[in-house]
Simulated scan of single mutants.
Amino acid sequence: MTQITLETDRLILRQPDLSDFEPLCELMADEETARFIGGVQEPALVWRGLCGIVGHWALRGYGFFSVFEKSSGGWVGRVGPWFPHGWPQPEIGWSLNRSTWRKGYATEAAAACMNHAFDTLGWPDVIHLIDADNLPSQGVARKLGSRDLGTDVEVAGFGMIVDVWGQSADEWRVARKSLG
């Protein structure tokens, strides 16, 4: 499989590998960070999750990217296209270390992934599954030009009810112009 890397002004997004295990364990051990993505996980479950992400890449040809800050080389989080079994349709999701919140990294990385999903993968539209109480992620979705589609779904395997946010490829082509 060809390795895919995306680059933004401040970030590098690459396919995940074994070196991402420890920083992903840190992300998933932080109660506030993990609150809306299934809760805190012990390393054994994080390992299974990382293997699932790598497997998603192998089976679908895309998946969450590991995101790195160019200036420091530090691991920021995971962002990307995602369509596991039981999802209503493909999504662009994001989970970033709390230490990197409010720097615009989620919007920047998600925008690069939106471009990839629409321009390379050919998706006609995209969703983001966001908990009704997750105001920061709703803010990221709004900055991307997405809106609450008025639908609630249960996240398969997690038992969580979330709001479905999203937009079409045509809407994105207009919205991305305002992101610069």
Rank of each mutant, 00 (worst) to 15 (best):
S99K: 13
A58E: 14
G157M: 05
E154S: 07
M114W: 06
R10T: 05
L121P: 03
G80R: 03
E69V: 02
W123M: 15
D20E: 00
E31D: 06
E42M: 15
T120C: 12
L135D: 03
W172F: 00
A110N: 06
E108K: 00
V54A: 05
L121H: 01
V54D: 08
G49Q: 04
A169I: 06
V162Q: 10
S137H: 11
D125S: 14
G55W: 02
A110S: 15
P90R: 05
E22R: 09
W87C: 14
M28L: 12
W165S: 06
A156R: 03
G104K: 02
V40N: 09
G159W: 03
F65I: 11
V54F: 08
L45D: 15
A29E: 08
D119Y: 06
M160T: 13
Q41K: 14
T100G: 08
W82V: 15
R98I: 02
C113A: 15
F21M: 02
V164L: 06
A29S: 14
G104P: 04
V79K: 01
Q89W: 02
Q15Y: 06
V126N: 04
W101Q: 05
G80V: 14
D170E: 15
F65D: 13
C25N: 14
T100I: 12
I130H: 07
S66T: 08
S168K: 02
L6I: 15
E22N: 07
A169D: 08
E171K: 00
R147K: 12
R102E: 12
H56P: 03
R102P: 08
I161R: 09
S19E: 13
G52V: 09
D119F: 04
A111D: 04
G39Y: 03
G150H: 01
W87F: 14
E171C: 05
N97F: 07
P88V: 12
D131R: 05
E91L: 01
L149N: 14
G93C: 06
V174C: 09
G104C: 02
E22S: 08
F64V: 11
R98V: 12
R10W: 07
R48V: 15
G122Q: 02
E7R: 10
R176L: 07
W47H: 11
S72Q: 04
L45F: 11
S168M: 00
G73N: 00
R14M: 03
S99W: 11
I130W: 03
P23E: 03
E69R: 04
H56R: 05
E31S: 10
C25P: 10
W75T: 04
W87Y: 13
V40F: 06
H56Q: 09
L144Y: 03
L45H: 13
E26F: 01
E42G: 15
P84L: 08
H116G: 12
T100D: 07
L27R: 04
S99F: 11
D131L: 09
L129M: 12
F68T: 15
N115L: 10
